[in-house]
Design a protein around this nucleic acid. Structure first.
Length: 205
DNA sequence: AAATCACGCAACCGCAGTGAT
DNA sequence: TATCACTGCGGTTGCGTGATT
């Protein structure tokens, strides 16, 4: 069995046995250190593959089954606002992973809404990636609203630059998002921003 | 019944960010 | 400060399966 190439990582679908081994590892050691998990358990899988399998399938918090009307509606609204930032969108939908949301959008919702499939300027632009990183930082920490390596002005420039691009995109479908709306959205300082009245009002617009 | 097609989803890939040393 | 390992993200690919011919 340990022939040539035995150190190569296995690819393709996970077997029930591999799932069980990974579950056992997480039970004992917890999440994280996925590369170590691959070595310790003897799974011939890369750390990234282990992480993905846990996050998208094995984790007890993952909700299986069809998306509800409410979930569809929320995804559509958030996608209007955020573009292809699937992890952010998924973070607002309990039990759903970014992969699930992304697949659901690409296979159902984009067709339903008549959105042409293609690379999003929003998500592929370097500025938006940076902005997103900053955005995530803001989400995870109350005391670091502005990243230490950016002044407020610089951050504002990045946001406004992104606004122009996003508005350009979103206006193709529903030109309702003004820069004021975005400011209200981006410049929050509360982890529970999704459920704040201002954002919900914004979504309802 | 067999072959082909279309769709949905799981998984992979490449890149960027972050933290440890 | 530089480097490396690890993690996380979005885009894309390809397999499995059900529908259609």
């Amino acid at each position: 069995m340990e022939g040539a190439g035995s150190r190569e990582y296995r690819k393709g679908l996970w077997t029930a046995e591999e799932d069980r081994i990974l579950m056992d590892y997480v039970k004992v050691h917890g999440k994280g250190k996925w590369n170590r998990a691959a070595k310790v358990t003897g799974l011939r899988r890369g750390g990234k593959s282990c992480r993905l399998r846990w996050m998208n399938y094995l984790s007890p918090s993952v909700k299986r089954g069809a998306f509800s009307e409410e979930e569809d509606d929320l995804i559509i609204r958030l996608h209007k606002l955020l573009g292809n930032r699937w992890s952010l969108i998924a973070g607002r939908i309990p039990g759903r992973t970014d992969n699930q949301v992304k697949n659901h959008w690409n296979t159902h919702l984009s067709i339903k809404l008549g959105v042409k499939k293609g690379k999003s300027k929003i998500s592929s632009s370097k500025s938006s990636k940076k902005m997103e990183a900053n955005f995530d930082t803001n989400l995870s920490s109350n005391d670091r609203l502005i990243p230490s390596n950016k002044t407020e002005t610089e951050l504002q420039n990045v946001i406004e630059d992104s606004h122009e691009k996003e508005i350009e995109i979103t206006s193709m479908h529903e030109p309702i998002l003004t820069s004021d709306c975005y400011e209200n959205f981006w410049l929050f300082n509360d982890d529970s921003y999704l459920y704040t009245p201002s954002l919900m009002e914004l979504l309802d617009e």
